[in-house]
Design a binder for these strands. Structure first.
Lengths: 234, 234
DNA sequence: TGCATTTCTTTTGTCGACAACAATCCGCGG
DNA sequence: CCGCGGATTGTTGTCGACAAAAGAAATGCA
C-alpha cells in the first residue's frame, strides 16, 4: 500500500517509463532513502511501478553507468556503497572540479548564466531560512551545477555533476550522524564566488573555489578521518 | 556473409552476450569502423550477433552512458558525432587530466604499476617499429590509462579513460586525413614521464605531462583550427 | 505539376514467458 | 552434534511477439 501514488497513474506515454524509474530511483539513492548496499529486486520494482521488468532493467543499467548501483552477475543489483576508506580521492576530485569549473565559469559565462546562478543562490537562502537540511544539500548541488554549466566544458560538467551527486549522499550521511543538525551556512562564500565570476576575475574564482572546497572538506574530514589530500600547488 | 566469425560461435555463456556486443561495438566506434552519425539498427545487430535484441539494447544503453552513441526517442540510435567546434573543451580536459593523473601516479604508484607502465611503453615501441598507426593510437591510450590507474583516483581515472577513448577517434580522424601517415613518435617523452613517476618528482610529472599534452594538442589544432584553450596558470 | 493527406513500412519501446544460475533449506552420513 | 550433498526456491538473463511512433510512399485534389 506504499505505492498508491503509482497506482493512480496507470497511463504512461511510450518512452516515459525508463525516465520515471530512473529519476525516482536516483533520488531515493541520493537521499539515502535507499541505503547503500541494499539489494534491488527487479520484479518488486516492476510491480511497484506497474510496468514490465524491461524498463526497470534499462534504468538500472543507466544508474550502474553512473556508479550509483553495482550489478553482480546473476545476482541482485545493490545500491552502490560509499567507500569511506577512499574518501580522500573524492575530496581531491571535488576540490579540483570546484576550482576548474568556477574558473571556466568566470571566463565563459554569459549574462543568462548569472541569472540562473543567482536564482540558485536565492533557493539556497530560502532553504536556509526554512531550516531544511535536505533542501540545503540538494540546492547547494544545483548552485554548483549551474556554475559548472556556465563553464561550458561538457567533460568537466559531467564529472562535476557526478561528484555533486555523490556528495549529496556523503553529506546526508554526515549530517544524519549529527541528528540532522543544520549544515553550516555557505551563503557568504557563495556570494563571493558569484561576484568573482561576474567580475571575470579568474584567479579569484580559483582561490575562492578552493577555499570553499577546503572549508567543506575539512568539516567532513574532521568527522570521518584525517585529510589525506595532496596539497596540489598546480 | 560478413558475419561468418559470429556464426562459428552459437554457444555463449549466460551473461556474456552484452559484454561481447558492448566491446565489439565500442571498438568499431573508436576505430571509426562505424563512422560518427551512422544509424545503429538493433535488429540488424541482433541477427549479426545471433542473439535477441535485449542484450544489444543493454549494450547500446551502456555506450550511450559513455557518450559513444546518441539515442533519439523512437528513432534509431546513432554513433556519437565528433563536435569539432567544441574541440577546445576536449583539449582543456585532456590536458588537465594528463597533468593530474601523472602527478598522482608519481605520488601513489607501487612497484607493480611501474612494471605495467613500462610494459605498455614496450608495446608502444613495438607498434612504432611495426609502423602500425592504429596500434600506435590504441597503445598510446593504454600507456596513459596505466598511469591513470597508478594514480588510484577512480573519479579521475574514469574521466581520463573516457577522454582517451574519445581521443582515439579524434586522432584517427586526424591521421586518416593525412592518408595514415605515421603519427609523430612520443617515445622519448614517454620515457621521461616514466622516469619522473619512478623518481616521485611530482612537479616534474606535472611539467612533463603538460608539455606532452601541449605537443599533441598543438599538432592537431594546427590541422583543425586555432588553439582556444585557456592558458591556465593554476 | 505541386502540395496536402492518408496509407504503409520500418524500427523502436514494452510485455510476458522461459531457462540458467545462485542461495537456501532439508536430509543424510560421519 | 556437525558437515556435506541434493532438491527447492527465488531472481536474473534472454527470448520472441506485439503495438506505438516516426518516416516513406502513395494517393487525391487543386
Amino acid at each position: 500500500m506504499t505505492d498508491a501514488a503509482e497506482d493512480a497513474l496507470p497511463e504512461r506515454k511510450r518512452g516515459s517509463g525508463v525516465k520515471l524509474v530512473y529519476e525516482m530511483l536516483r533520488d531515493e539513492i541520493l537521499t539515502l532513502a535507499l541505503p547503500p548496499g541494499k539489494p534491488i529486486d527487479e520484479v518488486h520494482l516492476a510491480e511497484r511501478f506497474g510496468m514490465s521488468r524491461t524498463p526497470i532493467r534499462e534504468a538500472l543499467v543507466r544508474l550502474a553507468g553512473e556508479g550509483l548501483v553495482e550489478t553482480l552477475p546473476n545476482r541482485s543489483a545493490i545500491v552502490a556503497n560509499i567507500d569511506v576508506l577512499n574518501l580522500y580521492t573524492y575530496f581531491d576530485a571535488i576540490t579540483l572540479m570546484y576550482r576548474v569549473t568556477t574558473r571556466l565559469a568566470g571566463q565563459y559565462h554569459r549574462p543568462e548564466d548569472l541569472v540562473t546562478i543567482r536564482a540558485r543562490q536565492a533557493d539556497y537562502l530560502r532553504a536556509v531560512a526554512a531550516q531544511d537540511p535536505l533542501a540545503m544539500i540538494a540546492v547547494n548541488r544545483e548552485f554548483h551545477a549551474a556554475i559548472a554549466e556556465a563553464g561550458r566544458n561538457p567533460y568537466f560538467t559531467t564529472l562535476t555533476l557526478r561528484l555533486l551527486d555523490e556528495g549529496r549522499r556523503i553529506l546526508r550521511l554526515y549530517y544524519q550522524s549529527f541528528n540532522d543538525r543544520l549544515p553550516q551556512e555557505y551563503s557568504d562564500e557563495h556570494e563571493a564566488i558569484i561576484a568573482a565570476i561576474a567580475a571575470r576575475d579568474l584567479d579569484l574564482c580559483d582561490r575562492l573555489a578552493r577555499a570553499h572546497a577546503d572549508q567543506i572538506v575539512r568539516q567532513i574530514q574532521k568527522f570521518f578521518g584525517r585529510d589525506q589530500r595532496l596539497d596540489i600547488a598546480l
